[in-house]
Computed example of a mutant assay.
Amino acid sequence: MSFLKNIFKGGEQPVRSYADFWTWFQKNEKAFFRVVKEKRDIHKDFFDKLSPKLNELKDGFYFSTGIFDEHTVKLVLTADGAIKNIPFVEELVKAAPQINGWKFTALKPALDITNVYIKMGGYKFADENIHFYANTSNEFPDEIDITVLHDDLTQKNKDTIINGIYIFLDNFIGELNFATTIDNVNVIGKSEAEKELVPIAKLKDFLKWREKEFIEKYEGIRHNTQNDTYSGLEATLNSGNPVVAIINTDLLNWDSKASHPWIMSVEIKYGGTANNGMPDDKTYQLLDDIEKDILRELKDFDGYLNIGRQTAENTRDIYFACRDFRKPSIVAYSIVQKYSGQVDITYDVYKDKYWQSFERFR
């Protein structure tokens, strides 16, 4: 009996749920609070303990901490700009209990322009030396495309300035807005400007106006795929193996693509070298079951459109265009968990208002 006690003495239960994580955090929060308040070795005494527990829950969690006020320490949990991880950060913080002395925040919040000041690589990033202007396109009118200018940018320091601009924007407009509202950002020097410069302080108002305009334009638009036309496409790769795709061609010709700006791509790698990279009967059934599971969760009338699939070189890719990014991210992760050990599944969720990812199928 004493041997068993020694094994489990001081042992911690693995984190398998949000509740497990917060139970663990509550057991340690007083020690973590002192580490931050007394400005001790935060990495060693806080972050090095926090990080493994978050990784047990799921990879893709990042964090920062600091003093919120005299009696409160803040912990900001972030996805570091990864769209597919944002819903999990939000859910984790939503599940947080009230803990005296702690303030938990999901994603880096937007700051007032007077509070955003960054020094990096010897350069300053602040409202007085950063400007922007909007770019317009007749071909892609709904895209939010901006050019950001920094007074000190040169060819020599371009990488440092671009990195600093991204950090500045992430803090100024907030992590969620930076990750989801802007489609394209181009960073240049002031001498390269082609339009009238706008103070960076006005960027938030510009984004709010464009987002409101976009929502009003596409609000309520849905597409019923029940009677759509699907085309089978075949080609031969350089390896000599076939590639086969089944694509909803009516969707590819739809004139309201931007109403479903989020693309979910699920990649399934299956084993075996027979059939020139095509699945055998057993594997085909498994791939079909996985796709049906996704379709049960993501329905067209709810705003999730199955564009089609492609199969080649022992890989099946499944594509959806979606009105939002949160539910597809959660569904795809649950599929990865469900079929773990049977096939290797990865997924991505990204913004592509005009579905340019699928031009190769047209």
Rank of each mutant, 00 (worst) to 15 (best):
D142G: 10
N135R: 11
Y117E: 11
T78W: 04
E139Q: 10
H131R: 15
K94C: 09
I67N: 00
T78L: 04
K124Q: 12
N115K: 15
Q98I: 03
T72N: 13
K124S: 14
A126Y: 14
T72D: 10
D112A: 07
E70W: 06
G81L: 05
T65I: 06
L92A: 04
T114D: 13
T65N: 09
K124N: 15
W102S: 01
T78P: 07
T72F: 06
L111I: 05
K108N: 11
V89D: 10
G121Y: 06
T78V: 09
A96L: 01
K108M: 08
K84F: 13
K103H: 07
I99S: 09
G121F: 10
K108Q: 09
A82C: 15
N135V: 12
Y117P: 02
K94L: 02
K119V: 14
K94Q: 15
F132K: 03
D112S: 15
P97C: 01
V116S: 15
D142Y: 13
G122I: 02
F63Q: 05
K103I: 00
K124G: 08
E70Q: 13
V93G: 00
T114V: 06
E70P: 09
K84S: 15
T114N: 03
Q98R: 12
K103P: 00
E91R: 08
V116A: 09
N135H: 10
K119Y: 14
F140A: 15
K74W: 07
K103V: 00
M120F: 15
F104E: 00
I118W: 07
P97E: 07
V93I: 11
F63S: 13
G66H: 04
K103A: 03
I99E: 02
N138R: 14
F88H: 05
E70L: 10
T105Q: 00
T105D: 04
E91A: 14
T105L: 01
T78M: 06
N115Y: 08
L92M: 02
T136N: 13
N85F: 08
S64T: 14
P141M: 08
P141E: 09
K94V: 04
P87E: 13
I83H: 02
Y123G: 05
E128Y: 12
G66R: 02
F104N: 03
Y133Q: 09
T78I: 04
P109D: 11
I86F: 11
K84D: 14
P109I: 04
N115F: 04
G66C: 06
A96M: 04
V89G: 09
G101M: 07
D142A: 05
G122T: 03
G66N: 04
T72S: 13
F68L: 08
N138P: 02
N129I: 11
A134M: 09
F132M: 06
F140T: 12
H131I: 01
P97N: 01
F125T: 07
L77P: 02
P141L: 09
I113R: 10
G66Q: 02
A82F: 12
K74H: 08
F132T: 00
N138I: 08
E90S: 11
A82W: 04
A126Q: 14
F63T: 11
V76Q: 01
G101H: 08
P141F: 05
A106S: 10
